[in-house]
Simulated scan of single mutants.
Amino acid sequence: MLELIGKRILLAIPTLFLVSIMVFSLQKLLPGDPVVAMAGEERDPAVIAMLRDKYRLDDPIPAQYFYWLRDALHGDLGISLRTQEPVTTLIAGKLPVTIELTLLSMIIAMALGITTGIIAAVRRGTWVDYSANFVALSGISIPNFWLGVLLILLFSVKLQWLPASGFVPLTEDVSQNLRTLLLPALVLGTGLAATLMRHTRAAMIAVLKADYIRTAKAKGLLPRRVILKHALRNALVPIVTLTTLLFGELLGGAVLTEQVFTIPGFGKMIVDSVFNRDYAVVQGVVLVVAMGFLLLNLLADVLYVLINPRMRGE
Results as ranks from 00 to 15, higher is better:
Leu232Met: 06
Gly191Met: 14
Thr241Gln: 09
Asn297Gly: 13
Val281Lys: 15
Val289Gln: 13
Ile227Ser: 01
Thr262Arg: 06
Val288Trp: 02
Val274Tyr: 11
Arg201Asp: 01
Phe266Ala: 06
Asp211Leu: 04
Leu221Phe: 08
Leu287Trp: 10
Arg277Leu: 15
Asn308Gly: 04
Val271Ser: 14
Ala254Gln: 04
Arg224Thr: 03
Leu296Lys: 09
Ala290Cys: 07
Val237Cys: 04
Ala206Lys: 00
Met269Ser: 03
Leu303Gly: 04
Val286Thr: 05
Gly220His: 02
Thr241Phe: 01
Val302Glu: 12
Ala290His: 13
Thr195Lys: 07
Leu287Asn: 15
Gly248Leu: 04
Leu298Ile: 12
Val282Gln: 00
Val226Tyr: 03
Pro223Leu: 00
Ala193Val: 05
Gly292His: 14
Lys219Met: 02
Val281Gln: 08
Ala194Glu: 14
Ile239Ser: 06
Arg277Thr: 06
Val285Ala: 07
Ala254Phe: 01
Gly265Phe: 10
Phe275Asp: 15
Glu249Cys: 08
Lys209Tyr: 06
Ala206Ile: 02
Lys229Cys: 00
Tyr304Phe: 05
Gly220Glu: 06
Val226Glu: 00
Asn276Lys: 14
Val260Met: 14
Met291Ile: 00
Lys217Trp: 07
Gln259Val: 09
Leu236Asn: 01
Val274Glu: 09
Leu232Ile: 05
Leu246Asn: 15
His230Cys: 04
Leu287Glu: 12
Val281Cys: 13
Ala280Ile: 09
His199Glu: 12
Ala210Cys: 04
Leu192Asn: 15
Ala193Gln: 03
Val288Asn: 05
Leu228Pro: 02
Ile307Lys: 10
Asn297His: 08
Pro309Lys: 06
Tyr279Phe: 15
Tyr212Met: 05
Ala194Asn: 00
Val226Trp: 00
Gly253Ser: 10
Val302Thr: 08
Asn276Tyr: 11
Val255Gln: 07
Pro238Arg: 15
Leu306Lys: 11
Leu245Ile: 03
Thr195Met: 11
Gly248Ile: 09
